[in-house]
Simulated scan of single mutants.
Amino acid sequence: MVTIKFTIGAKTATFTTTGGHPVSVEIGDFITLTASTTLNTILADIIVFIAVQ
Rank of each mutant, 00 (worst) to 15 (best):
L33A: 12
F15T: 08
I50S: 12
T34Q: 13
A51Q: 14
T17H: 02
T32Y: 12
T38Q: 10
F15R: 06
M1W: 02
T38E: 10
I4C: 00
Q53T: 13
I8K: 06
Q53L: 13
S24G: 09
I47F: 09
V52R: 12
T14F: 02
T7F: 03
V25G: 09
I50H: 12
I46L: 12
I50A: 15
A13N: 03
L43W: 11
A35H: 11
T7M: 02
T37H: 07
Q53K: 14
I47S: 15
T16A: 11
P22Y: 00
G28E: 01
K11W: 04
F6A: 02
A44F: 10
I8S: 07
T16L: 03
F49Y: 13
G19T: 05
G19K: 06
A44L: 13
M1A: 06
T3V: 01
Q53G: 13
T12F: 07
T41P: 08
T32P: 02
V2I: 05
T12Q: 09
K11E: 08
G28S: 09
A13W: 01
T7V: 05
T3L: 00
I8H: 03
M1R: 00
S36N: 15
A10G: 06
D45C: 08
F15I: 12
F6Y: 03
E26C: 09
D29P: 04
M1G: 03
I8M: 05
L33W: 10
V25E: 09
T38W: 03
V25M: 13
H21R: 07
I42M: 11
H21K: 09
F6D: 01
E26W: 06
T18N: 08
V25R: 08
L33C: 11
L43C: 14
V48D: 08
T41E: 15
I42F: 13
I31M: 10
I42G: 12
P22K: 00
D29Q: 07
D29V: 03
I27A: 14
F6T: 01
Q53M: 10
M1Y: 04
T32K: 11
K5W: 00
M1P: 05
A35D: 11
G28H: 04
T3Y: 02
A13G: 05
G28F: 04
T32D: 10
T12C: 03
Q53D: 12
D45L: 10
F30E: 08
V23H: 06
D45Q: 14
I31H: 05
Q53N: 15
G19N: 08
I31C: 09
Q53F: 12
T7Q: 02
N40R: 10
D45A: 13
Q53A: 14
S36Q: 13
F6G: 01
T37R: 10
G19Y: 04
L39E: 10
T38C: 04
F49H: 13
E26R: 12
I8F: 02
G9T: 08
T3D: 01
T41N: 14
L43A: 15
H21Y: 04
I42D: 15
K5Q: 02
T34I: 14
F15M: 08
I42T: 15
A10Q: 09
D45Y: 14
G9V: 05
T32V: 12
G20W: 03
T18S: 10
I8R: 08
A10H: 09
T38K: 10
T37P: 08
T32N: 11
F49I: 11
T38N: 12
F30P: 00
I31Q: 07
G28R: 06
I4S: 01
V25N: 06
